[in-house]
Amino acid sequence: MLDYDFSSLAIKGKASRGNLVTKNVIQRISLKSKGISTIEGKDIWYDTDIQRLNDEEHGLYLGKFEDGDKVLAVFRNGTFYTTSFDLVNRYQGDVLFVEKFDPNKTYTALYFDGASKSFYVKRFSFIVSDNTPICFISDHPKSYLVELSSDRHPQYEVIWALEDKPAEAVDAEEWIAKKGIAAKGKKCSSRNDVKSVRFIEPLVKEDDNEIPSEDDETPQSSSAEEPEAIIEDSEEETYEEPTLF
């Protein structure tokens, strides 16, 4: 049996005779796998009913994928993983969302830390995990994800235990800097009488109306070669490494 990769063939004119695959007698030829066009890419959708990818326009459109692009799957238990965009992939469990992976995209998570019994906030980007589930909140058994936002300027509300005390709105960008995914984050408030937290209407800032010049504009990339710079702050808690499941 002989495998032949047609992507290794140079593109020639239609008058070209082509390449000789083998001098041996051929009994049968079959397609082993179908490659992806390096020119146009491949449009991919996610069907939430069967939790599978497809190229037949069923469900949520994820985007145009090229060789090396990844799919990000995030779950309500505070875990995530990335996969290829192979149509055989299935995303089982309590899925929060599935989308095209972008290493530069910033997310803000609100979660309850079971160890300290406090609400935390963290800002980070997801990383490539190659089908390995990773927890992006603390790994205490009583920890749980409250909400996850991809808003540009997220804002959350702190509800206090005392009912007569008005809720407080917090600018997440001002409260905590973006860090690596292994960071624990920062308490949602310096006070301890927090009853609950939730995202509210995101803020609109002056830079939202700015039109970037050609020199400043950088296209989004699905490659993890040049992720957005991450600010490290030694004052806030971090994990030594992500929790693997």
Results as ranks from 00 to 15, higher is better:
2 L>P: 04
6 F>K: 11
7 S>G: 12
10 A>T: 14
11 I>L: 14
12 K>Y: 02
12 K>I: 03
14 K>A: 12
18 G>M: 04
19 N>E: 11
26 I>N: 06
29 I>G: 07
29 I>V: 15
31 L>K: 01
34 K>D: 08
35 G>M: 11
42 K>R: 09
42 K>Y: 12
43 D>K: 12
45 W>P: 04
47 D>E: 10
47 D>W: 00
49 D>A: 14
50 I>Y: 07
50 I>G: 04
58 H>V: 11
61 Y>V: 07
62 L>R: 02
64 K>C: 13
65 F>L: 03
69 D>F: 01
70 K>A: 12
72 L>F: 00
72 L>P: 00
75 F>E: 11
75 F>I: 09
75 F>G: 04
77 N>H: 05
79 T>F: 07
79 T>V: 06
83 T>C: 08
84 S>A: 14
86 D>I: 00
87 L>K: 10
88 V>N: 15
88 V>D: 14
94 D>T: 07
95 V>G: 09
101 F>W: 05
103 P>G: 08
103 P>A: 09
106 T>Y: 03
106 T>V: 15
107 Y>R: 08
107 Y>F: 14
107 Y>H: 12
108 T>I: 06
109 A>F: 02
110 L>Q: 05
112 F>L: 02
113 D>L: 07
121 V>G: 01
121 V>A: 09
125 S>E: 03
127 I>K: 15
128 V>S: 11
129 S>N: 02
130 D>A: 08
133 P>R: 06
134 I>M: 10
134 I>C: 09
135 C>V: 11
135 C>E: 03
136 F>H: 04
139 D>A: 14
140 H>P: 00
144 Y>V: 02
146 V>L: 01
146 V>Y: 01
149 S>P: 11
151 D>L: 01
152 R>M: 11
155 Q>N: 12
158 V>I: 13
161 A>D: 08
161 A>H: 08
162 L>S: 15
164 D>Q: 13
164 D>S: 12
165 K>E: 14
169 A>S: 14
172 A>F: 04
172 A>K: 02
174 E>C: 13
175 W>D: 08
175 W>F: 15
178 K>P: 04
178 K>H: 09
178 K>G: 10
182 A>E: 13
182 A>F: 13
182 A>T: 02
183 A>T: 10
189 S>P: 05
189 S>W: 05
193 D>T: 12
193 D>N: 15
193 D>P: 07
195 K>P: 10
196 S>M: 06
198 R>T: 12
200 I>G: 09
201 E>D: 14
204 V>Y: 09
205 K>F: 04
206 E>Q: 12
207 D>N: 12
210 E>L: 10
215 D>N: 07
217 E>A: 10
218 T>L: 13
226 E>R: 03
226 E>L: 10
227 P>E: 05
227 P>L: 03
229 A>K: 00
229 A>F: 15
233 D>H: 06
237 E>I: 04
237 E>Q: 13
237 E>G: 03
239 Y>P: 00
241 E>L: 07
242 P>R: 01
242 P>Q: 08
